[in-house]
C-alpha cells in the first residue's frame, strides 16, 4: 500500500509549527501542493518546498481571514482541507472575559466553519474531497480552566458529524481527529516538568505523541485509502481516554 498525493491540492491552517506543520510537511513530501497559514511571516521550513504556498492569516481579524477565504475560494481544485489552527486561553468559568471567549470561538470554531463553507463548493464541483478537523481529547474530556477550549473542540466534533451528512453523497468525507498531548514547541513552552509528568502518569503509552504520529493518521484519513469513513471522531492518544 503506497500512499501518495501527487496532483492533489491541500489547505492546512495553522501550519507554522506543531501538528499543522507536521501534516503540511508530510503532504508535501508525498507530492501534494499545500496552501498553509500562520500568524507570522513565512516560516523557513515552508521555503524548502516548491509546492508550499504560505499566507499570513490572523484568524482573530475577520478581514484577514476573509481575504484568505476569498483567495482559496478562487482555486479551481481543492482536494483536502485540514482545519488545524487553534488557540487556547485558560480561565475558570466564573472568570471568563467575554472577549477571550469570543477569541477562542472565532479561531477554533467559526474559522473552520467559514473555511469549510468556502472550500466545499470547489470540492463539490469535483465530486471529491477530504476534510479533517483537528479537535482534541479536550473535545471529549476536560480539565479545570478549559471551558472555552473544550467547548470549541466539542463544537468541531458536532460540525464534523453534521457536515459529513451534508456532504456524504458528494464523496466528500469529513472527520475529526483528537490528538492527545503532543510533543510540540507550544507544549514545551506552556508546560513545566511537573505538569508534564502529571499528564504522563495518565498516558498508558508513557510518553506524549510525536507530531509525526498524528500526521501519519491525518494523512491516511485524507488519502484515497480512506473512502468510507465519514462523520467520525478518532482519538490518537496512546490510550489516555481509554482509561
Amino acid at each position: 500500500m503506497n500512499i501518495s498525493f501527487i496532483n492533489k491540492v491541500a489547505i492546512v491552517t495553522g501550519g507554522e509549527s506543531g501538528i499543522g506543520k507536521g501534516i503540511a510537511e508530510k503532504l508535501l513530501s508525498l507530492g501534494c501542493l499545500v496552501y498553509t497559514t500562520g500568524v507570522n511571516d513565512k516560516p523557513e521550513w515552508c521555503g524548502q518546498y516548491d509546492k508550499c504556498i504560505y499566507t499570513k492569516v490572523d484568524f482573530l481579524n475577520q478581514d484577514s481571514l476573509d481575504s484568505f477565504i476569498n483567495e482559496i475560494s478562487q482555486l479551481s481544485k481543492i482536494d483536502i482541507l485540514i482545519n488545524n489552527a487553534g488557540i487556547q486561553i485558560m480561565h475558570a468559568i466564573d472568570n471568563i472575559e467575554t472577549s477571550d471567549w469570543d477569541k477562542v470561538m472565532d479561531v477554533n470554531l467559526k474559522g473552520p466553519m467559514k473555511i469549510m463553507r468556502a472550500v466545499v463548493p470547489v470540492m463539490k464541483s469535483h465530486k471529491e474531497g477530504r476534510i479533517l478537523n483537528i479537535s482534541s481529547v479536550a473535545g471529549l474530556i476536560s480539565k479545570p480552566g478549559q471551558s472555552s477550549y473544550s467547548t470549541t473542540k466539542s463544537g468541531l466534533i458536532g460540525l464534523t458529524r453534521s457536515s459529513a451528512l451534508d456532504l456524504a453523497t458528494f464523496n466528500i468525507l469529513v472527520n475529526a481527529l483528537c490528538p492527545g498531548t503532543t510533543q510540540t514547541e507550544m507544549v514545551e513552552k506552556v508546560l513545566n516538568v511537573d505538569q508534564k509528568n502529571a499528564i504522563l502518569q495518565n498516558v498508558p503509552m508513557g510518553r506524549f505523541a510525536k507530531v509525526d504520529e498524528i500526521a501519519n493518521f491525518a494523512v491516511f484519513l485524507c488519502s484515497e485509502y480512506n473512502s468510507y469513513m465519514t462523520g467520525q471522531t478518532i482519538v490518537v492518544d496512546g490510550g489516555f481516554t481509554a482509561r
Binding site: 501519519n216 493518521f217 467520525q232 490518537v236 492518544d237 481516554t241 481509554a242 482509561r243
Partner: peptide, 11 residues
C-alpha cells in the same frame, strides 16, 4: 505507521 493509536473503537 500507527505507533500511538490504541484503545480505540473506530467506526
Amino acid at each position: 505507521l500507527n505507533t500511538y493509536i490504541t484503545g480505540q473503537n473506530i467506526i
